[in-house]
Amino acid sequence: MSKKTAKSMITDALEDLSSRDLKKFREKLCDNEEPRVTRRSVEDADEMDLAELLVKICTEAKAVILTIDLFTQLGFSNQAERLRKGLEAATVPSQASSESRTKYVLEGGQHFIDKHRIRLIESITTVEPILDRLLAKNVITHENYTLIRSKSTSTQRMRELFELGSIRSTIKGKDCLFDVLMELEQFVMDDLKERS
């Protein structure tokens, strides 16, 4: 990052939390499906250790986005917003190209899939091919696949898909879903990109 490193941004954000909220953050991080973090690796970790761990297990850009996502899930909206603004002000290096980084993550650090969740649930009518591809990429399990297919309407199926931990809680899952939707529902996705 040109102005501030991912590690320092995350450390500063975590230092804003009370000790009780920091404990909640550690728990939420351990409950996250991906990246997997063991309780042992975070139980005695202070803010700087947690930031270092996040950057180590993710790319720098994804570490910041994951932290924002966890803050949002925990209801720490002020800290999430401050970190989002810090992300906007910085240039985050990524292993992905600049083009692919912007296709997933919008200004403010919000993932495209999260921002357009409602419209995607309402717009997508053929869910099975999406499930087939997500299953092939190991983003969902056979149990997930069967559960989602058992729903009677496409809206219910899409809603159930968005509630899966691998989609709701992981950047990788959201990125995979984005790619699958670009392949199968390009008109819908292009329309949402224009609205962004």
Rank of each mutant, 00 (worst) to 15 (best):
K115A: 04
K115P: 00
K115C: 04
K115M: 05
H116G: 02
H116Y: 06
R117D: 00
R117V: 00
R117I: 01
R117P: 00
R119P: 00
L120W: 02
L120I: 09
L120R: 02
I121R: 03
I121T: 01
I121Y: 01
I121K: 04
E122R: 11
E122K: 11
E122V: 05
E122T: 06
E122F: 03
S123C: 08
I124L: 04
I124R: 02
I124F: 07
I124H: 03
T125H: 13
T125V: 11
T125P: 02
T125N: 13
T125A: 09
T126V: 06
T126D: 06
V127R: 01
V127C: 03
E128V: 09
E128F: 11
E128G: 07
E128T: 10
E128R: 12
E128Q: 14
P129D: 08
P129E: 04
P129Q: 09
I130S: 01
I130W: 07
I130R: 03
I130N: 02
L131N: 05
D132M: 07
D132I: 05
R133F: 10
R133K: 15
R133E: 13
L134D: 05
L134F: 11
L134Y: 09
L134K: 10
L135D: 06
A136Y: 13
A136W: 12
K137D: 15
K137F: 15
K137E: 15
N138K: 15
N138E: 15
N138W: 14
N138F: 14
V139W: 07
V139G: 04
I140T: 04
I140A: 06
I140L: 13
T141N: 10
T141Y: 08
T141E: 11
H142I: 11
H142T: 11
E143F: 10
E143R: 14
E143D: 13
N144P: 06
N144D: 14
N144A: 07
N144K: 07
N144G: 06
Y145M: 07
Y145T: 03
Y145E: 05
Y145V: 05
Y145C: 04
Y145W: 14
T146N: 12
T146S: 10
T146A: 12
T146E: 09
L147V: 07
L147G: 02
L147K: 07
I148E: 00
I148M: 01
I148N: 00
I148V: 06
I148L: 03
R149K: 12
R149L: 02
S150I: 04
S150P: 08
S150N: 13
S150H: 11
S150F: 08
S150Q: 11
K151S: 03
K151Q: 08
S152C: 12
S152F: 11
S152R: 15
S152Y: 13
T153R: 12
T153L: 13
T153G: 12
